[in-house]
Design a protein around this nucleic acid. Structure first.
Lengths: 196, 196
DNA sequence: CTCTGGCTATAACGCTCGTCATAGCCTAGC
DNA sequence: GCTAGGCTATGACGAGCGTTATAGCCAGAG
């Protein structure tokens, strides 16, 4: 009995999310994830019997949930503050890793399964995007944005931030995230100012 | 002597770009690329003696150049038309492939090399992004946008389109690209209307 | 103290990968 | 016709992958 209470499992998931965000889904091997989390390889298949499919899915859900949590907290102060926190979060990850880490949700979304082997992780990625968009949409509406335009505006925010993360990695510069931050702030400010 | 004149080489590069955009950089194996281009595996190393590094780099450059060419043509009609063409191009690729293909430049930007093995392809990706941004910036400036704001606006366009491509793949829906298209059109329209 | 069961350790399986080497084809130039 | 050289064909190499199986450890329940 005695059901573990291990931090092992969570460490593996978090490590997998980090690894995926750096190397991509395919190059993030289970062996490396286990070593990086100081867990034996056997434990990986003990905690995640469905193998890499399950591990990748949980890693995406974990990352999506973490970001959503931060987003939820900061959006209380208003959409502009929330978007700023969203951007700063990713900026920090990119800079702290010296442009080696990115967004695991994006990484999974870009690498398709061979045929349709790992659609589970893709579903989790879609879920993460949708949750972020939903949070942003609600905040925009609550602060006077046109309710009909809010979802598209939220999609613009998520899409541009994800794209900017990739661009920062390629350029090894934070310029894209900074430019996107600046423009998004202007756009959202205008959208809140002129509510119908 | 007789230097080939083969379409083989270009077919391999184009096929590699397509494969990378579907499976990602790591999962796009040279064997599969060769088979998909109906070229023997040996030829791959004949044409690209530096191996996968070189092939990936040329594939990114090829894709970047193709998009830039289309962008250049359509931006003559104005930034709004150019952005629309940019979005429609990617929308077509995503839809025609049944949400299996994406942007090879994005794929390369998301998957880092193990240590710093393939920075060449990353450099090519950065170059592609920069060329697209430059074309958009010039068109925005030429049509009355604030010259200081134009580069950031161009970055927003590229980032949001790239992010939307990934989101469409995850959701298996074109909604993100459509929402981004709609919002970008509004933002650009406003930026052109109110030039300082 | 015993024993149960969650976790670990270790080794192996088949497969695919990137890369290289070598021998052969087959056209274009003399 | 013959020869040279761009391209092809074939097969092998070591390494890493995901996955599985089996035996062993070791805390905690009885």
């Amino acid at each position: 009995m005695a059901q573990s209470s291990t931090p092992s499992r969570e460490r593996i998931v978090a490590g997998a999310a980090d690894m995926i965000s750096r190397r991509g889904l395919n190059a993030a091997s289970i062996r490396e994830v286990a070593k990086h989390a100081r867990a034996p390889l056997g434990s990986t298949y003990h905690y995640f019997p469905e193998g890499k499919r399950q591990l990748a899915t949980e890693a995406v859900r974990y990352a999506g949930g973490t970001v959503a949590h931060i987003l939820r907290k900061r959006l209380d102060t208003g959409p502009v503050a929330g978007v700023r926190a969203f951007l700063d979060l990713w900026r920090g990850i990119v800079v702290d890793s010296d442009f080696r880490a990115g967004c695991p949700v994006l990484a999974v979304s870009v690498e398709a399964p061979p045929d349709d082997d790992i659609p589970q992780a893709l579903l989790a990625a879609a879920g993460a995007f949708e949750e972020w968009e939903r949070l942003l949409t609600d905040a925009l509406r609550a602060h006077g944005a046109d309710p009909d335009r809010a979802p598209a505006l939220a999609a613009l925010v998520v899409a541009s931030v994800e794209g900017a993360i990739a661009m920062c990695r390629a350029k090894r510069r934070t310029e894209p995230l900074d430019q996107v931050a600046q423009q998004l702030e202007a756009v959202i400010g205008a959208a809140l100012g002129s509510s119908a």
